[in-house]
Nucleic acid binder design. Structure first.
Lengths: 231, 231
DNA sequence: TTGTGAAGCAATGTCGACAATATATGCCTC
DNA sequence: GAGGCATATATTGTCGACATTGCTTCACAA
């Protein structure tokens, strides 16, 4: 059921995120377990315990935990240990504040640097998503949303932007989405917003592209906040 | 001569960055050596070599290098090793693109969340800097600039913003500044820009604060680019 | 001469054991 | 009974050794 989404994510990520070493594999596995709530938010990560559980040495676990710490998925205190971050409304808001700034800039840069081919590809992608979305369910939209934002971010051609968002923030966002149980609302409206953003990029209108992207993320934030307060 | 600046920086950082463990100390030392060019940009970081040089075990060096990799100060390849990042004009531009987005948002959030006391303190700080700057030299301006931007960023109360900028980008920016030998130009004009930004924050004008900060960083970028092309 | 492959070497990846530190337990004092 | 100090225990930090990987060199054949 959510396997499709995972496969989709894996395809998107496969270019940069192929596991070479044991530490890589352990890192990816741990990250997945944390994002999906298999390891509960706020719980302690014992190096010994995990090393027996994942059948690797403590050094490997340590490296994996260190990497998770740089993604802000866990917090580590010297001589004490590491804990999975706690989910809080404030944390989610802060996350979306950063997304608004970074993805807004990404859209601006995408309008400047994406090739015509890349833009055409993205428009085709949007078309194909639209066909699937119009009568289907929300997780397609989830995957489509992921695809869309990834293309914009990578289209910025900015290494820092790409790594902060794709290696860092997006996993945290997904953690909130999964664990607070908001699968994929705002299907049709979000889709229109995507369309407008791509149009602005195709017109090479940097200013508009950034503004529309910022609004798009702001709306998402407001929508999620509303859900948090009601449910 | 540049010891004053370092002391200043250390004071600013002392809250969050106190070295507890050997890995901490080694990390800070390595970062300093890389930023200041003691270890040249693009050079290879051999774990064995460094472990003898800094008189710690390879595990400590490994952890330090991993942390440096998350700051984007070094790049690591599996089963091959780590290299200090290479300095390039494109890299500097990308850095300032991200700064523009993040610090713009930081200024907006500072206008929203900073307390009146914090704002008053920042204004006083600016006054004291002005007294020192008006007949003195540029490294005061350097330290003052650092102080100013730190206050804005921390004033945003956004953990992600703070960590990405202070733990990550600022060190890279300093690496470029130090190694490309641009100590601190644009003294008076930059100072006026700081004034205007603080005023916007004091007036709780989020929109203007963000816009002024983005312009401020854009001007810095243009200035540095000019220097790069001429020198 | 050039290209292919095997062997050697040097560096990174991984491991288990030891040292240092923080938390928990229990005793003693007030 | 409450609070503080010392010990005890469990966890993290550090280390040196071994395993594995990638690069280099040299030989051999086309």
């Amino acid at each position: 059921m959510s396997t499709l989404l995972h496969k989709r994510l894996r395809i998107v990520l496969s270019k940069s995120e192929q596991a070479i070493t044991n530490a890589d594999r352990t890192f990816f596995q741990l990250r997945k377990d944390i994002v999906e709530g298999v390891i509960p938010a706020g719980s302690k990560l014992s190096e010994m315990e995990l090393s027996t559980k994942y059948e690797v040495s403590r050094a490997v676990i340590r490296e994996a935990i260190n990497r998770l710490a740089t993604c802000h998925l866990v917090e580590r205190k010297a001589n004490v240990g590491a804990r999975v971050v706690a989910l809080s409304p404030e944390g989610l808001i802060q996350l979306y504040q950063v997304r608004e700034a970074l993805e807004g800039m990404a859209a601006r840069l995408a309008a400047r640097y994406m090739s015509d081919d890349e833009i055409a590809n993205m428009q085709a992608l949007l078309d194909s998503h639209f066909d699937k979305v119009k009568d289907s369910h929300s997780y397609y939209q989830e995957a489509g949303d992921v695809d869309f934002h990834y293309r914009i971010v990578t289209g910025s051609k900015n290494e820092h932007l790409i790594s902060v968002l794709i290696d860092g923030l997006y996993h945290l966002v997904r953690m909130y989405r999964v664990q607070l149980g908001m699968a994929g609302p705002r299907v049709s409206t979000a889709f229109d917003e995507h369309r407008h953003i791509v149009n602005a990029i195709a017109n090479r209108d940097e200013e508009l592209a950034e503004m529309l992207m910022r609004r798009h993320i702001l709306y998402s934030k407001n929508n999620i906040e509303k859900k948090l307060n009601h449910g």
